[in-house]
């Protein structure tokens, strides 16, 4: 799956989670006040189910979830490791 397609899906998910808000791919969602405890696990479940990866304790770094770009990078990294 291309990087753009991954980002589009994450973008769509976040827009739904944040009541239709338009979020730039490099926007820090936590600084912007979008992130909350309920959303945190929703995001993990979303990327696992949608992209077929497993987020484990080593991935629990706020930088991995800070923006659409960062989440997409996590997905790409995990998929590359799984494919290797």
């Amino acid at each position: 799956m291309q990087d753009k397609a991954i980002k589009d899906q994450i973008s769509e998910f976040m827009a739904q989670a944040f009541s239709g808000a338009v979020i730039a791919h490099d926007q820090d969602i936590f600084e912007a006040g979008f992130g909350n405890s309920m959303f945190a696990m929703q995001l993990v479940n979303f990327v696992e189910v949608t992209f077929g990866i497993e987020v484990d304790s080593d991935d629990l770094d706020i930088d991995n979830f800070r923006s659409i770009d960062r989440v997409a990078a996590l997905v790409q990294r995990k998929r590359a490791v799984a494919a290797a």
């Binding site: 405890s37 696990m41 629990l60």
Partner: peptide, 12 residues
Amino acid sequence: GKPGFGVSHVAA
């Protein structure tokens, strides 16, 4: 888990 994620992920 990791520090900072005790409530949002582990407890949740």
